[in-house]
């Protein structure tokens, strides 16, 4: 009750008063102060919050809505007009572009990222919602190619076979293992095996460890579920808002260095970036699992939850980009 009253007072009276005072004293609006004072995810997250809490939030809502409609009509083919929105905000806030020339491009970058994240959720959800079907030749081919990438020296005896267990599916037919993650589970695994073949085989090999072994594909699908849930809950904003302009280039994981075009700012995250992050999380989970020295595979849920906790604490730090050796980084903090 007290909390609700306080929140109401804060949002309707106190916050606007502080903002008004700061504006009078400093001569800049909140968005300008954010753009000047912060960079990366810290900036974009604050801009997002400011826009959502703004009395002009209509502007934000309308912009977001307009983009969604446009995307649906054109099936994602049209770029939403970010510049128009930036101009709108500049007018409403009365920002002088001569005095603050950096404001418009900074704000634009933020809007591109905010919108990009929403679109990524939409795109990923579309893939997840598609169930695996044995009647779909594309699905079947992808599954068979997954096998070929992971097990180049062994051919499948038949489509329905116990061999699927070798790459960590549960039964004779992987079809039943995708479940709630649908095609997203297969796309993720396939991307890993196709783009990072050596790394994927290495992880698969770890999963065959006599004591610390686990089911590669099943754990892979569980990591899909983890990555998906972090995305949908908005937890990956930290990562994706920082992604195009990482704080320290030199520390970047090899994985990312193979995709130099990612650095072109501002570029919204795409499905491939999600897949890439997935590969990274699966590799990290594998390391984490081995480091935990589990008694047996029945410890999976406990270790998975511990892994998630670690990720969440890293993502609370606005400077985090999920990249190689983050487990070590987490240990230090």
């Amino acid at each position: 009750m007290w909390q609700a009253t306080w929140l109401y007072l804060y949002l309707t009276w106190i916050r606007p008063m502080i903002k008004w005072l700061l504006r009078k004293i400093l001569g800049t609006c909140e968005l300008q102060r954010i753009c000047r004072g912060y960079g990366g995810a810290a900036r974009t997250k604050r801009v997002e919050k400011s826009l959502k809490l703004s009395k002009y939030q209509v502007l934000y809502v309308f912009w977001n809505f307009q983009c969604t409609v446009l995307q649906e009509i054109t099936h994602g083919g049209a770029e939403c007009d970010v510049d128009q929105t930036v101009q709108g905000i500049i007018q409403i806030k009365g920002v002088s572009q001569q005095k603050d020339p950096q404001f418009a491009p900074s704000l634009r970058g933020c809007l591109v990222q905010i919108r990009g994240y929403q679109e990524l959720i939409h795109e990923v959800e579309g893939v997840r919602a598609e169930a695996y079907s044995s009647d779909n030749q594309e699905h079947e081919n992808m599954l068979l190619q997954l096998w070929d990438h992971l097990m180049p020296d062994t051919s499948l005896e038949s489509r329905i076979t116990k061999q699927w267990g070798d790459i960590g599916f549960q039964g004779d037919d992987p079809r039943t293992d995708f479940r709630g993650m649908g095609m997203l589970g297969l796309h993720n695994l396939f991307f890993f095996a196709d783009q990072q073949t050596e790394l994927a085989r290495q992880v698969l090999q770890h999963s065959h460890h006599p004591q610390y072994g686990y089911s590669f594909a099943i754990v892979g699908i569980n990591i899909t579920s983890l990555t998906y849930s972090l995305l949908v809950r908005g937890k990956l904003r930290t990562h994706f808002y920082n992604f195009p302009s990482p704080p320290k280039l030199s520390h970047f994981h090899l994985l990312y260095c193979e995709y130099p075009h990612f650095y072109n700012f501002p570029s919204p995250p795409k499905l491939n970036h999600f897949h890439l992050l997935y590969c990274h999380l699966l590799v990290e989970f594998d390391k984490f699992w081995l480091a935990e020295k589990p008694r047996d595979v029945m410890e999976f849920t406990r270790i998975r939850n511990k892994f998630e906790k670690k990720l969440l604490s890293l993502l609370r730090d606005d400077s985090t980009v999920l990249r190689g050796s983050f487990v070590e980084k987490g240990e230090q903090s």
Partner: peptide, 12 residues
């Protein structure tokens, strides 16, 4: 919610 279930590795 039962719409996002994944195969159980270990137990719940």
């Amino acid at each position: 919610d039962i719409s996002h279930i994944t195969p159980t590795q270990g137990f719940n």
